[in-house]
Every structure is written in structure tokens, then in C-alpha cells.
Design a protein around this nucleic acid. Structure first.
Length: 211
DNA sequence: CACCAGGCAAGTA
DNA sequence: TACTTGCATGGT
């Protein structure tokens, strides 16, 4: 247990409270959101997901069978829509080829093995794979994103250019492997990042972590 | 107007 | 291996 990591979590939780990311969403909706949110503001992703939902495409089978142009038209608000359409389709091919389109079967696979399989899907990198594992499938995997690295490096807990795995290991080797903790911690880091730890930093002085 | 957002893959050297 | 670039919409 790393005292400092626990302390940071407590301060963030005290300052912001529970973030309840992806509450009441189906695992499949979370997976789609994880792909659509790549380098994209969440508000834009919500519009795209709402469009898919309105046209009843938020199920593996329906999205798998949907025309390419229809998908790209519906997800347009989330940006990079041509690439993301291809990525959604790559993911669906994986889901049907490997698990008969069944999220339940996919969830039953060994976590480390599943992570490797996800990383082999074109369009799914480390953060997206881990987001799917943690937020959709409730596997105890810590999600690292740009904010996580920026915050931790500014607090000198990692190097500025630390690798993804290195950053992830810091959390996973020094915290209890609890889904709920990993879920809230990552969401809280994003919350802190948005408000107090932007690239060009407006409000770093007011940071609840106290610099 | 510039910059940023819950990344990733492909190309180059 | 280590950089660079394209991808695209919408908010500040």
C-alpha cells in the first residue's frame, strides 16, 4: 500500500465525491462509449451514443448488422467518424468471431488473456482496452489516461514520459485490487484534470491536492 | 482566432 | 526504438 496514492484518493473523494461513471449503462453501451471517446470530449460522445440509441443500434447484433454509412452518420458528433466507424466494426467482428456476439461469454474469459485479445483489435489501445475491462466488465484493472500521467508526473510520482504499464503498475501494485476503488479513482483523476490540471494550466494553484 | 478533449495507428528514420 | 502526422466535431 502506497500511502501517498491512498492520500490522493481520499482528498479527491473528499473534494469531488463519487463520480459514478457510466451509471446504469449496459456493458455494450460502455464499450461503444470507450471507443468513441478516444481523444474526444465526452459531451460529443453523448450525442453520438444518443443517436445510436434513438435508432436502436445499441446492441451487438444490431450494430454488427448496421450499414457502414448509417453508423458513420450517427456517430458524426463524436468526431473522427470514419475511423471510429471502422473501429466499432473491428470490435464487433472480434466480439462475434471470438464470443458469438455475447458480452457474457466475453466477460467469462481470463482477464489478462482478454486484454491481449482486445489490444489485437485495430483501434483498441491500452486505455480503451482497460476502460472496457474496468467500466464495462468490472474487472479490477486500473485505467491510465493523459490526465493520470500529467497529474502523477506533476506530483513527481512518475516520470513525465513514463510508459502506460509503468503508470498502471504503480496503482495496481500499491492499492487493493478493488473494482470500485479503481473505478472511482480514475474518474476522480479525470475530474481533477479537467478542472485543475489542464495542459495549459489555469487553476493549478487552487488544486484540492494542494500542489 | 487558437486550443483542447476520458487515443490510436501508420509512416518515417 | 523514437518521433511525427492524420483523424474531425464541438465547446471555451
Amino acid at each position: 500500500m502506497n500511502r501517498e496514492l491512498v492520500l490522493i484518493y481520499r482528498k479527491l473523494y473528499a473534494a469531488f465525491g463519487p463520480q459514478h461513471w457510466w451509471p446504469g449503462k449496459t456493458p455494450f453501451e460502455v464499450m461503444v462509449g470507450a471507443i468513441l471517446t478516444q481523444n474526444t470530449a465526452w459531451s460529443n460522445v453523448e450525442k453520438a451514443v444518443a443517436n445510436l440509441k434513438h435508432d436502436k443500434l445499441l446492441s451487438p447484433l444490431k450494430l454488427h448488422q448496421a450499414p457502414v454509412r448509417k453508423i458513420s452518420r450517427l456517430i458524426k458528433p463524436s468526431g473522427y467518424y470514419n475511423i471510429k466507424t471502422a473501429r466499432l466494426r473491428e470490435f464487433l467482428s472480434f466480439l462475434f468471431n471470438g464470443y458469438q456476439g455475447s458480452i457474457a461469454k466475453m466477460s467469462g474469459a481470463n482477464t489478462r488473456q482478454l486484454r491481449r485479445q482486445l489490444l489485437a483489435v485495430k483501434g483498441i489501445g491500452e486505455e480503451t482496452a482497460d476502460s472496457i475491462l474496468l467500466y464495462a466488465l468490472r474487472k479490477p484493472v486500473f485505467v491510465v489516461d493523459a490526465y493520470t500521467r500529467r497529474i502523477l508526473s506533476r506530483h513527481r510520482l512518475i516520470k513525465k514520459d513514463a510508459a502506460y504499464q509503468e503508470t498502471q503498475n504503480l496503482f495496481m501494485e500499491n492499492l487493493e485490487n478493488q473494482v470500485q476503488l479503481f473505478n472511482e479513482y480514475h474518474a476522480l483523476l479525470v475530474k481533477l484534470g479537467k478542472e485543475f490540471c489542464r495542459k495549459t494550466n489555469p487553476r493549478c494553484r487552487e488544486c484540492p491536492l494542494g500542489k
